[in-house]
Design a protein around this nucleic acid. Structure first.
Lengths: 169, 169
DNA sequence: CTAAATCATATCATTTATATAGGAATAAAA
DNA sequence: TTTTATTCCTATATAAATGATATGATTTAG
């Protein structure tokens, strides 16, 4: 499960991505449009700023805007900025390392090895999804009214791994 | 982050997998060997039994043993049995569906579409890792003392996606 | 019948997630 | 320089999830 924070962060970033080059956007505006509690969103925006994903300008006429371009902002970087702990086990975090008390020897810990692999895979997954990859490309208006759903992506995009919208929960 | 429950469950299952065909194993034994709080482990074993991953026998000489073979037990099924909610958003759960209050139209919700993709990928990932894939194959004793670390797997195993043990947390 | 084990249920403690609140700092405009 | 609009910072409140413990009932081999 992703947290609400992460979801809100992504919504806010997509919001900003859609307004690149239009100057800073008020937190209030984002909150209203995306239906996010305003005060809570402010905290999230601060995290995103610290994480280097957005820049902010205080004072009248201020607001928030993307630091980089949508192609360069991956889900992984968002999650990193928002959720402190993204590692599958505390013993796998470089910044918040805590040894498992049920582990005698990390070097031979089967579980640890397993989760390292999982982590690598999941990171790879999230790093390949960018803000740009979730936005419809608004380039050149007219192709003969074909369904816009399957536009060929110009940026890395999720592959459709045998997709059957797999059973949940 | 995976929960402790999930980690304990996996450790217990690997423990059982190593003892396939040797009759039921006491919860107490698993708890001691794997350094898991015993009472807590019992609860987890019950969940695993309900989830169909282990079978249990009460009474003297009882214990727990794998229901299927290690090749058939995927991490996905473990997580499903242990953590109730594995979906990235509550609006994506079939069994615990809750509409997001910050969403007017699920059909056009960009975030939802995004997370559906993520979910598919992550499920695919977890479903390809089985108990068997985390255990060293003890088959036929003698190959000329080569490092056993890179034995060619006979069961689905994680690919090594450009692995650089990616930066964490 | 008894001992060894699981099974069921309740409770408690801790941590994490989700906010909310008050006001300080910043910066533009009047 | 004052006003006003905005972000920024810190603290607190509330609720939910997680992790763990406790008590006792139930099952079953011997």
């Amino acid at each position: 499960m992703f947290t609400h924070r992460a979801k809100y962060a992504i919504k806010a970033l997509v919001h900003l991505a859609r307004r690149v080059g239009q100057g800073p956007v008020h937190a209030q505006t984002i909150a209203d449009d995306e239906q996010i509690p305003e005060r809570f969103l402010e905290l999230i925006l601060v995290q995103l700023r610290i994480g280097g994903l957005v820049r902010s300008r205080a004072g009248r006429g201020g607001g928030h805007f993307l630091e980089g371009s949508p192609e360069d902002i991956s889900l992984l970087s968002v999650i990193r900025a928002i959720d402190e702990q993204i590692d599958p086990l505390p013993c796998l975090s470089t910044t918040a390392y805590v040894r498992c008390r049920d582990c005698d020897d990390e070097a031979t810990c089967t579980t640890r090895h397993l989760f390292i692999k999982i982590q690598e895979q999941q990171s790879a997954l999230l790093s390949h999804v960018t803000l740009a990859s979730v936005m419809p490309k608004p380039r050149m208006a007219a192709t003969p009214a074909a369904s816009p759903k399957l536009r060929t992506p110009t940026h890395p995009v999720l592959v459709n791994a045998n997709s059957q919208h797999s059973p949940t929960t």
